[in-house]
Each structure stands twice: as structure tokens, then as C-alpha cells.
Design a protein around this nucleic acid. Structure first.
Length: 524
RNA sequence: GCGCCUGUAGCUCAACCGGAUAGAGCGACGGACUUCGAAUCCGUAGGCUGGGGGUUCAAAUCCCUUCAGGCGCGCCA
């Protein structure tokens, strides 16, 4: 990466300093810039501009065509075209920021009590892309889905199903307080009734298995597959819940109050202590959750990432304090909050509520909108940003839809290459790189070279949307190039060079879309 | 009351650890297909970055304050 190379050069001059390399704003001379002169000038109480000039005069490298100093004290680097061309046509470089670290990313983990909703779909898109992104940047990635099959929710589910069976038998259904009302429960009840299952425990097991299978199927259709599906019950079976409890007691980190057992999370920075065993002797979610993370850590992961919805925000601290309490470093676990999704149709918001039974599920959405479009749309915002999913725009198969815009650029390139081949134009192998010198060509070259840098930024920030934005930009640059310059032209050598350039563009788009989990058709 | 997120062009959003004249898309207006895919491109208009203070050579970005919206805050998960 050019950015990294510049960084290294400056780092040698200023070993103590943190080097920052920025892109130069449009219309400004140069490609990259650094603010190092500001810092040095401030430290040595020297005039900034002169300091910048002095520093600039000390930098020499073959890849740098020229260095200029601007206004307060920016140092701008212009990279030589020949260097960029050499670079852009060489093998794509490996990016290794993970250094083989084993990282687990847990996401979706929707309760097996109903279909996957659109909020979870966003988590699925983000988590899956993040997994691909981290793999690409040198991490050893494991993806995991945690199935909450313990707890009270699953009992309520079983009871709700049983009531629906009563209803099917001509009696009135009395859905329990906090139970599940959705129509999907009726479908499930029909199945359970047909199988003649009556025992409540068996209904529960059947219902949970039913939803797990359902989730697996629908996520697969969405292009998301997990390495592991871990059930809460398996954590109990391994005895980890008891282990955690014992460990906490040994460390004197629990106490009894009002008949309940509390964990002293305040010792680790929580706002208040938390209950882990209720006065009627049930575990709260926190205890098995800590145990589950103990399990994750026992499996030798260097880092853990969880992707949660905003409604779980309050639990972050408790869980982090909890795993600190059992002796793991605090920064082992990072929890990313992915904000909610609002479904929009004809400018109107559609409210989602599981309880009321009017859910917009991923399954329903995929019936109307292609997988690629759904994924792309869900990856267009930073995690912390709430997202409006515009159904009308998503259904639009034309100019407004950014997915097609990007895919179209790729298809267009493939079409040109095909055309060239039909005309018997050979390309591949060596060619005169220096024929590429038009403004639009160079802009395209720079955009392609930026790709690994974007990958790095996206991976470091855990933000796949950065890549989404980049791909739109790259497509735009290509379309613009296409409009101005002909790839297939009278000049055989130039045609050869341009074919190689657009082919590189297509490879980059394909690679980027691949990380987003979006297909990249050759024709559309 | 407390915690987290958000407030940028008419709309939806960018702006990487604080950097240069705050950028795109949509919408509006005006142009470009005898030629490699017009699902495209080019141009014009549109901004006191919610308000007010502060820190800094430099603030949309950091701090304080205020206003507005969203989501949480259980011996539920």
C-alpha cells in the first residue's frame, strides 16, 4: 500500500511521532499529505511553514514524483505515474493486520421463538461481511450463532404453541402473558398437532428445533453461514454455568440480598451490582451469558466480537464486568452495537413489533427484494447509524439503485472484454504501461490502488459500509472513464493497455462485492 | 432522572486519529447515444454542519451547555 510506504518513510525520520497520512482533497495538488510539520513545529516552537519546507527537503524516494508544501504546513506527495502503474498491474498484495490472531465473531443469535426480523438481517449482513473482511486482513475468523434455548422465552413459546393447538381443536386459545401471537405460531402448531406431540417439553424441543432450522435456511438463502451453532443448553451440559458460579464465589464476588444472589460487577466499573440467581432460584440471563463467554475463551480465541442490537446496549457493561470478574482481560470482548432498521415504503415508516404479530421478516423481504440488494442496502450505513430501508428504491431495478450501478460497471467491463475477444484482439502478458496517461485513466488507477487501503480502514473500524461507499465511487470513476475514452480503438498497443486496466477494475469490483457477500454477474 | 445513539443541501447520507474551498446520490433544471452496454455520462442550482460558549495553528469532528428525535435502564431474554 502506497499510504503505508509513505508512513514508513516518515516514521524513519520521526521514530517518536505518530505518522498520519491523509488523502489530499479534490482540486489540490498531490495525492497524499501529512500533517507532521504541524506537530514538529509546535514541539520545537518553529514557524510551521518553514518547518514543513525543511522536512520536505529531507524526503526522497523513487515513488515520489514531487513534494509540495502548502499554506499552514501541509506536506503533499505526488506519486509518480510509472510507480502507480507498476503497482496497479502487479499481484494484489496481502493485507495482514490480524497476524493470524484467532478472532470470534458472534452475531444474529436471534431467539428461536420466531422468524428472523430485519434488524437481525442487518446484523447478519454486517457480521458476515465483517467476517469476510477480517479473514481478508489476516485474521483467523470463527463465526458463531448462539441459540438461546434455555430461559423463559422458550417456555412461553411452547405454551403459546400449545394454546394454538387448543385453538385448532376448536377451543379458545389463551396465549400467556408475554407469549407469542404471530401467525407463524399457528403454522408451527399445525405441524406439532400433526405429529401428535402433546408433552410440553417435547413441544418446546420441537419448536426450538423448528426455528433453528428455519433460521439456518433463511440465513443460507441470505448468503450467511456460521461455523458454529452453539446452544445455551450445551453450556449448562458442560457445567460451565456452575463453574462460573463457583469461581465467583471463590473469589468472593457474590453475595446474597433479598433472597437473590448478586454479582459484584460494581467492582469492575458497573453502575450497580446484578442479580445472577433470582429469589425463586432461577438464573438470570447474565449467568449463562458469562458462562458462554467463558466457553468462547476456553476455545482459545484471542479476541471476541459480538454484534448486538441497540436494545441490548445496557447489558454491555454487565457482561464485560462479568468476564473481567472471572479473570479475563477487559478488552478481550468487544461489543458492536448495530442500530435499528426502519422499513420505509412510499416514504412511510412501517412499524415493527414482534408481539403484535405484524413483523416484517427477512424471509418476506427476500421474497420481494433480491438478496444482493438487501445486503447492499443493509451495508450502506455505519453501524452506529440507524438505517432507513427504502423498499421502493430497493425494488427499483434501474438508475437509482446503487447495487445495480456497481454491478453494471462490472458487467460493462466484461462486455467490452468479450467484444475485444470477438474481434480477435489479444491481451494479457506484457504491454506498454506508460501508454496510460490520460487524466481519467490515472484517476482510475488511483482508485484501484486505494482498494487495499479501504479494506484496511474498514477492517480496523469494523465497518463494512466503508467498502460499500468505495465500490460506488470506483464504479462512478469507471463509468466516467468509459464515457470519455474508448477502450477498443485503432491503437493496438493502447487498446491492450486499457483492456488490462479495465480488467483490473473489474477484478477489484468483484473482490469488493465478494467481501460484502454480493454477487457480481458478468451480464445483467 | 440516568446511560447509549443521532442531528450536515429539499430528501437519504459521506467526510478515515481534529486538517486545506464540508462531498455524493436522489429530487429540480439544462445538455450528451451513426461508435466498446444511456441500468451511463457532463453541467447548473442548493450549506451559519440544530443553537450558544470553549480548547487549538486548524473544529462537522474534542470539551461544556442547551434544544430536538430514537433506543435502553427488571429478581425478562
Amino acid at each position: 500500500m502506497i499510504r503505508q510506504q509513505l508512513k514508513d518513510i516518515l516514521q524513519k525520520l520521526f521514530p517518536e511521532e505518530k505518522i498520519v497520512i491523509d488523502y489530499v482533497p479534490k482540486e489540490k495538488p498531490g495525492d497524499y499529505s501529512t500533517n507532521i510539520a504541524f506537530r514538529i513545529a509546535a514541539q520545537k516552537k518553529m514557524p510551521p511553514y518553514e518547518t514543513a519546507q525543511e522536512i520536505a527537503s529531507r524526503i526522497h524516494d523513487p515513488m515520489i514524483k514531487s513534494i509540495s508544501v502548502h499554506k499552514p504546513a501541509f506536506i503533499n506527495f505526488t506519486i509518480s505515474n510509472s510507480y502507480m502503474l507498476e503497482k496497479v498491474f502487479s499481484e494484489p498484495e496481502e493485507i495482514d493486520i490480524g497476524k493470524g490472531q484467532k478472532i470470534m465473531i458472534e452475531f444474529v443469535s436471534a431467539n428461536p421463538t420466531g422468524p428472523i426480523n430485519i434488524a437481525s438481517a442487518r446484523a447478519a449482513a454486517v457480521g458476515d461481511s465483517l467476517a469476510r473482511l477480517l479473514k481478508r486482513t489476516g485474521y483467523n475468523v470463527v463465526s458463531e450463532y448462539y441459540v438461546n434455548d434455555g430461559g423463559r422465552q422458550s417456555t412461553l413459546l411452547a405454551q403459546s404453541v400449545r394454546q394454538r393447538i387448543r385453538e385448532l381443536n376448536g377451543k379458545t386459545a389463551e396465549i400467556p402473558e408475554g407469549g407469542y401471537h404471530g401467525d407463524y405460531i399457528i403454522e408451527l402448531a399445525k405441524e406439532v398437532k400433526e405429529k401428535g406431540i402433546e408433552d410440553i417439553k417435547k413441544i418446546k424441543k420441537y419448536a426450538i428445533d423448528y426455528f433453528i432450522e428455519e433460521h439456518k435456511r433463511i440465513l443460507q438463502a441470505f448468503g450467511v453461514e456460521f461455523n458454529n451453532w452453539i446452544r445455551e443448553s450445551s453450556i449448562y451440559e458442560k457445567g460451565y454455568v456452575d463453574d462460573v458460579l463457583n469461581l465467583l464465589q471463590e473469589k468472593n464476588l457474590t453475595y446474597v440480598k433479598d433472597g437473590a444472589v448478586w454479582i459484584k460487577t460494581t467492582k469492575f466499573g458497573d453502575n450497580e451490582d446484578r442479580v445472577i440467581i433470582t429469589s425463586d432460584n432461577r438464573h438470570t440471563y447474565l449467568l449463562p451469558d458469562i458462562a458462554y463467554h467463558l466457553d468462547k475463551m476456553k476455545r482459545q480465541h484471542d479476541r471476541l466480537i459480538n454484534i448486538w442490537g441497540p436494545d441490548h446496549q445496557a447489558q454491555i457493561k454487565s457482561l464485560q464486568c462479568g468476564i473481567t470478574a472471572i479473570g479475563y482481560p477487559r478488552d478481550t470482548l468487544e461489543i458492536l452495537i448495530v442500530q435499528q432498521v426502519h422499513l420505509q415504503e412510499a416514504g412511510k415508516l412501517i412499524k415493527m413489533s414482534k408481539r403484535a404479530g405484524v413483523i416484517k421478516t427477512l424471509k418476506e423481504l427476500l421474497k420481494h427484494v433480491p438478496k444482493d440488494v438487501v445486503r447492499f442496502f443493509l451495508l450502506m450505513r455505519s453501524n452506529s447509524q440507524p438505517l432507513d430501508f427504502d423498499l421502493d428504491l430497493a425494488l427499483e431495478q434501474s438508475d437509482e439503485n446503487p447495487v445495480f450501478y456497481v454491478q453494471y460497471a462490472h458487467a460493462r467491463i466484461k462486455s467490452i472484454i468479450k467484444k475485444a475477444q470477438e474481434q480477435g484482439i489479444e491481451y494479457g502478458g506484457s504491454f506498454a504501461k506508460n501508454l496510460i496517461k490520460e487524466t481519467e485513466e490515472i484517476i482510475l488507477v488511483k482508485a484501484i490502488l486505494k482498494f487495499p487501503e479501504v479494506i484496511e480502514d474498514a477492517a480496523r473500524n469494523f465497518e463494512p459500509y466503508m467498502l460499500t461507499y468505495y465500490l460506488i465511487e470506483l464504479a462512478r470513476i469507471f463509468h466516467s472513464f468509459y464515457q470519455r475514452l474508448r477502450v477498443i480503438n485503432e491503437d493496438k498497443e493502447l487498446t491492450h493497455a486499457r483492456l488490462a486496466l479495465i480488467n483490473k477494475t473489474a477484478e477489484t469490483i468483484k473482490s469488493g462485492l465478494g467481501i460484502l457477500g454480493i454477487s457480481c454477474p458478468e451480464k445483467m
